[in-house]
Simulated scan of single mutants.
Amino acid sequence: MRIAFFAPHKPIDHPLPSGDLIIGRTLHDFLKAQDHKMMIASRFRLRHITGKPLKWPALYLEFRRALNRVKKFNPDLWLTYHSYYKSPDLFGPYISATLGIPYVIYQGVFATKYRRKFKTWPGYMINKNALLNADHVFANKAVDFQNLSRIILPEKLSHTSPGIDTSIFSYCRQSADRIRDKYNLHDKKVILSAAMLREDVKAESISDLIDAFKPVVEEIPEARLIIAGDGEARSRLQKSASYKVGDKIIFLGRIERQEMYKYYSSADFFAYPGINEAFGMVYLEAQCCGLPVLAYSTRGPQEAVAHGETGLLSPQGDIAGLSRNMLKLLKDKDLRERMSKAAPQRIKKNFDLNDNLRCVNIKLEEIISRRDR
C-alpha cells in the first residue's frame, strides 16, 4: 500500500516533543514497518491558520506543491493524523478527491461548542467538512468517538485507543538503583512527574503539584518529588519550589523518551495533575513500568487511569485532595503494591501499541480493497 501521510497540527519530525507528536510518529512508523510505502505529503503547519491571513498565500503555494508531490507518488490512500478546529485539514479532502483515492483521518476530533464563537467558527467548519468527506475516521479517545458518532455513519467510524510499545516501558531494577544513587534517593520515598514545562496548563499542573507536595513533605520529610521536563517555565517553577519546600524537589531537565523507563523504575509512584489533559501518554508509560498514578479526574486521566485500581484521581483544582492521595499512597504500601501489579496488566490489555495499530492497518487494507473492487 502506498500512503500519503499528513499531520496538519505538527509534522511528526518536529523537534518539540509532545504526546500528540508521539502518537503521530508511532502511527507513521508502524505502518512503514508493515512494508507500506509512506510519503509525508506536506510539513506545512495549519495550526490557527484560519486566523493568520498573512500565511494564506504561502498556504496556497504549498497546496499546489503538495498536489504535485502526491500525484508523482501515486498513493493508494491519503491518511491525515489529527484534524480538529485549531488545525483543520485543508489539503487532504481536496487532493484525495482530485486523485480519486480514499481519504482517512486518524484521531479525528469534533465538538459543536466551537461553532458558537466567531474566532473558532472557520476552523470548526473546515474540520467538519474534512470529517464528512472522509471515507473512514478513527477516534482514539472515548469522548471523541461519542462526539463523532453524531455526524459520522457507524460503518465509517472506529474507536482505537492510543498505545505504547510495552516492551520499551518496563521496570528495571538496575536502572532504578543507578538513578537513586545519582540523586541520593535510596532512603527516600520518591514521587516522579514529567511534563513539558511551558507557560500554559502544563506549568499550571506542575504548580498545583508543588503546592500539593508542600503539606506532604511537612508530614513525611523523607519524601522527594523529581520532575522530568524542560521549557520556558522551568526557572520560575524551580524558584517557586525552592521557596516552598527547599531542596525537596529535584528538576531533572529534559529526559529522552527512550530513557524514561529508568526514572519510572526509580519512583514509588507517578503524579501529574493533567489540567485540561486530552489523554497523557506519560500515564500509560508510568503504569506500564508498574507505577500507580495520581492525577486530576479530567478527561485524559480518566481514560488512561483506572481510579482505585491503578491510581487515584481527584477533582481538578482540588489541591488538598491531591495532597491526601499522595499521603495515602506514601503511607499504604499494600495499596501501592496492588496498584503496581495491576497497572502494567491493564496497559498491556488495553493500550498495547502493536495490537491497536494492527486493527488500524487491517481497516486501511479493507478500504483499499473495497475501492479496488
Rank of each mutant, 00 (worst) to 15 (best):
R69L: 04
R234C: 08
L364W: 01
G108D: 10
I101L: 04
E365Q: 14
E366N: 12
C288P: 01
F91A: 07
H36E: 01
V293H: 01
V293I: 05
R2H: 02
I220D: 12
R173I: 12
Y264H: 00
P154W: 10
L327Q: 03
W121L: 14
I206L: 06
V190M: 00
M281L: 15
R358D: 03
E155K: 14
A267H: 00
P215H: 03
I249M: 02
S235D: 09
I347C: 05
R69T: 05
H9L: 15
A228M: 06
D76T: 02
H48F: 15
Y94W: 13
N184A: 15
F351Y: 13
A33R: 14
N127D: 15
T98R: 15
L131K: 09
L192S: 08
C288N: 08
R25M: 10
R198T: 15
S242L: 05
E199Y: 07
L99G: 07
G92F: 11
P292K: 00
R373S: 14
H9Q: 14
A111V: 11
L90K: 11
F269H: 00
M326K: 00
I191D: 00
P102F: 12
L21E: 12
A233Q: 04
F269L: 03
G274P: 09
T50N: 10
Y85P: 11
Y114P: 04
C172K: 08
D332N: 11
K10T: 15
L252T: 12
S42I: 13
G51Q: 11
G311P: 03
D247A: 08
L335R: 04
A176V: 00
L209F: 02
N350Q: 09
E219L: 14
P17S: 13
L99E: 06
D211E: 12
S83I: 04
D144Q: 10
S161F: 08
K52F: 04
V137K: 01
W78V: 10
F138R: 10
M39S: 11
S369F: 06
E303I: 03
H28N: 12
T310E: 06
Q287V: 02
Q345W: 09
G321L: 03
D211H: 04
V70H: 03
R198I: 15
P162L: 10
Y60A: 15
I3A: 03
K328E: 12
P154H: 11
R115W: 10
I210S: 03
V245T: 05
T160D: 06
R150N: 11
D187Y: 09
A66N: 06
V282C: 04
A304S: 09
G231Q: 04
V137F: 09
E62W: 08
F118Q: 10
M1V: 06
P122K: 11
S266M: 07
I126N: 08
C288F: 01
C172R: 07
A195S: 14
Y183F: 15
E204P: 04
V104G: 01
A111C: 14
F213G: 02
N147I: 09
D20I: 13
Y283D: 05
H36P: 03
K248Q: 09
L148P: 07
H36N: 06
E337H: 05
G274M: 02
M39T: 09
H136N: 10
P17H: 13
R358G: 07
Y264M: 00
I152F: 09
G308Y: 05
F91D: 05
D208V: 02
R336P: 00
L153R: 15
S207L: 01
Q174E: 12
